[in-house]
Design a protein around this nucleic acid. Structure first.
Lengths: 96, 96, 96, 96
DNA sequence: TCGCCTGATAGTTGCC
DNA sequence: GGCAACTATCAGGCGA
């Protein structure tokens, strides 16, 4: 066991408390932002937009386009292997 | 308060216990099946398949195709509105 | 670049189909069980039980066996790791 | 049949772009905060704290203020609703 | 009955 | 590379 004298313990206590405090503040901010985002989706919904589609747009835009295409290729390959690439726009694009 | 005599209380106790028991058994089965599914994905991964793509295939197959196309249309419409439908297979399909 | 050609699809086709099939079967079972559970709640409701209360019983019993234990072990671990904090406001707050 | 034509896209285009833009900005903030939090944990680690224990402190403090309260109110509600069960094995298990 | 909101589940990411 | 924590999505229940 390392020796924990009063001083070093005191230092650590304050230090730890400081770290925890900073983390908790940041987490609260993060949480507030989450709420804000939620509100915007709600706003979009009231304006007649489809929330699910909005979310997917955001997701697609966030994805690196190289990764995105790789993922799509793979998925389409699997779909093709299952004989399911017939009559969707997606399927046609992949086959084209 | 309704009057709850011993008999009626007894009946209800057993009945309730039975219901709860059946529910808990079913929930356990459900949970086991979840674990089984997880295993199959792991198996697929070991066989060299991309798990993420597999999941999306399952998801797409599960979706009612009418709903799926509606969702895709909407998403593409939004993407188009944002000027982002240029150089992906997806985009070309939607524009085509 | 990975080669996305006929052969790679051909080799794994049956295997993939098998995996997907097994997953879909399990998902269906799971879904059926969900329906069964729902029925039991309905049955309980017809028998005069309060559905919400029933759900709470199930939830609470689930928590009691899992989460409360986790909570305790979490607390123990925390106390062991951070015993040095036992008499600070922070420590008291966390332990209290 | 819904009309998917130029006009519907045109009408909402700016509005949609605005919403998406706001969301993306917020998500970026959120993501930055996440990075900040990560840094603080790293800082704590360098200072000799156990990261896992730190995370547990944060988690526990979060639980203490939120979940434990919920757990209690759940239990109260359950007790009120099902007081009739107070002295059955089931009841004792749930209440115990 | 519809919309909202919470709780459950699935998916992703980061750590070991 | 597997495992565990966290996040985001989805579905079901509740209240208006």
């Amino acid at each position: 066991m390392t020796e924990i004298g009063d001083n070093s313990a005191a230092v650590n206590k304050d230090q730890l408390a400081g770290l925890i405090d900073r983390i908790e503040n940041l987490e609260e901010s993060k949480s507030n932002i989450g709420a804000d985002i939620k509100e915007i989706y709600a706003e979009g919904k009231k304006a007649g937009f489809d929330t699910k589609a909005m979310r997917e747009v955001v997701k697609l835009r966030r994805m690196d386009s190289a990764k995105l295409r790789e993922h799509e290729s793979l998925r389409d390959l699997y779909m093709a292997a299952l004989g399911m690439l017939a009559d969707t726009p997606l399927g046609r694009a992949a086959l084209g």
